[in-house]
Design a binder for these strands. Structure first.
Lengths: 352, 352
DNA sequence: ATGAAAGCGCTAACAT
DNA sequence: ATGTTAGCGCTTTCAT
């Protein structure tokens, strides 16, 4: 139960604590003999240096905080996995904090905990909590990197913006659009995701709107769609079972989802009431989760380069901690066509 | 960048450090006036007490280590989520450590890190690493609970066994068996999962074998299956694409998976080569992941009560930390029939 | 009710 | 090459 201390080791080895400390850190000169003796004792006593006491001297705790909305989402789980691995490779520990999306009380506690640990930096997926609590972190000039989402134009105490790494929805969204049009869809709508939660969802919606407008001159029918969207009862931007009926009434034949959870909801709902995905309704969603590949039909996705997101954000943070200026990064999204995109109903046989 | 210290607060408030400390801990008597003044200064300075320095006095760090094999597995992600939430509710921080399953070097580092943090206890999903590294934790008499799997009959330094909470495969497996037989299957096999990784998989296999033997008197055909299994080239127990051909040759019409990953592999493989699940091949798998509900056909599962597993293991650990004897717990598994279980090919129309 | 002083486990000057 | 001494930020006697 009782942890052995450096003093126990010193005593047992018949040397002073500082000698043991030196042996621990390879600092200063030590005779091979005493070093061997000390290591011997360390083994015997199963001594492990107390990293807390250790970190009180250096300004570094070699611990990075990772704040993610919900680890149960496989997208974030992947991200966490990658980040923890990368950090470990650089000798840092990761303190993963997941908080229930909405619960600002809980997230406040989490942030407090992080701060209390005197973390060296933080990697954050900004959620709705951001504005309220994140200042607590950035205020002190703690190196922080935003991942997957940006969060307005938050600035650190020194006036520098918090660098972020996220993905540019345009390339993927554009190609998704093209693919849908190619398949004959003219009434396309979007379920962006909870708009109030992150600017990411808002941006996806805006880009979608822009694309619609650009198509305007070429594809008259899509015009209607823009109107369609305003009638949407889910102002929040998340999916809502009511939407299915509405789409049917308005002749919407394709939907793009800004958030995988919503897509999954729709897939379930469609299965329940017998709407054939890829036939009655074509869908595309952001985030290329493993699930989407094994569903029948497979779901077309707009993939974010999650691997490089994970590794690069760590690099960015380490850069920041080293004091160098670090710019925000946008990764390209990539559209992956799959069978969930088919022709609109009533056009069967028209197109290969 | 610089964190405010208790001294800064004391100075600013014009009191001594000990007074501030008292205000922080609600210990001792303090006049309302100074307390208010101190809290005021704390706010102004954004002071957060250093939990490391704090925990050096009490023998408690109020931090629990959580060791899980792979956070990307939604089953473990769920578990981690539940556990972290429950611990937070009890005022504990969770240090989540995920390590690549096989990498014993990495897991050793992780364990070192945990130990260095002077964690108050640990919740562990024992993996292959167990035997080698877990002793490091239990040896000191650190309160440890095993979750989801047991790990041989490891004992702590005081001779007490490490309590574990896992699930009894029998109820679910028995019902799965019944259901398969009811649907007319007589050649059933199992892919238990990586046997060397955990006794859990071995147990599932053994229970499966027992069930086969029990059926022996009643159902002659299942006898063949027992033989089938021994020919299996994957001694490790994990799925292997070769198996599909083999099953076809041997007339295996139903497979039970001890591990969801293997089931997912098979589903993919079947899709690729056009084997119809629930028609050509019936499958059942452990772990009722969300994926299995939305696949078509939906996959029959043997569900573990993950929610109570998550909350109860925390209770067990807290109990242990409080010094009380704690027994191991086995939760019941439950079979959930879904469309992935149909009749064997060639018997269509025979059974409703 | 508050302050002074000792000490938690460790590191980092200073000695020697 | 090793020991002594002072802290790191905090809690906790023991005084006052």
């Amino acid at each position: 139960m009782a942890y052995a201390t450096i003093r126990d080791v010193a005593q047992q080895a018949g040397v002073s604590v500082s000698t043991v400390s030196r042996a621990l850190n390879d600092s200063g000169r030590i005779s091979e003999r005493t070093r061997a003796r000390i290591n011997q004792v360390i083994k015997e006593l199963h001594y492990v240096p107390d990293s807390r006491a250790r970190s009180m001297h250096s300004p570094h705790s070699r611990t990075i905080g990772l704040l993610i909305p919900d680890i149960r989402n496989s997208y974030f789980a992947d991200l966490a996995y990658l980040i923890q691995g990368e950090l470990l490779a650089h000798g840092f520990q990761t303190l993963i904090c997941t908080s229930t999306q909405g619960d600002s009380h809980e997230s406040r506690i989490q942030v407090r905990n992080l701060l209390g640990q005197h973390i060296d930096g933080a990697i954050i997926v900004p959620g709705p909590r951001s504005q309220e609590t994140l200042d607590e972190l950035t205020r002190r000039g703690l190196p922080v990197v935003y991942v997957d989402r940006t969060s307005g134009d938050r600035r650190q105490v020194d006036g520098r913006p918090v660098p972020s790494i996220d993905s540019d929805p345009l390339p993927g969204l554009r190609d998704a659009f093209k693919d849908l049009v190619k398949h004959g869809h003219s009434r396309i709508t979007m379920v962006p995701g909870p708009l109030e939660e992150s600017g990411t969802f808002r941006e996806r919606e805006e880009v979608f709107d822009d694309l619609l407008n650009q198509m305007d001159d070429l594809q008259d029918p899509t015009r209607d769609v823009a109107c369609t969207r305003n009638d949407t009862p889910s102002k929040e931007g998340a999916f809502n079972p009511e939407l299915l009926r509405q789409w049917r009434n308005q002749g919407v034949s394709a939907v793009i989802f800004g958030r995988s959870q919503d897509a999954i909801q729709v897939i379930k709902a469609c299965q329940a009431i017998g709407i054939g995905i890829g036939r009655d309704l074509s869908i595309v969603t952001f985030d290329d989760l493993p699930v989407f590949r094994i569903l029948t039909p497979a779901i077309a996705t707009i993939s974010q380069q999650i691997d490089s997101m994970g590794t690069r954000c760590v690099r960015m943070l380490l850069n920041l901690m080293a004091g160098s200026q670090t710019d925000s990064v946008r990764l390209k999204t990539k559209y992956l066509h799959r069978a969930s995109v088919g022709q609109p109903p009533g056009q069967a046989g028209q197109y290969p």
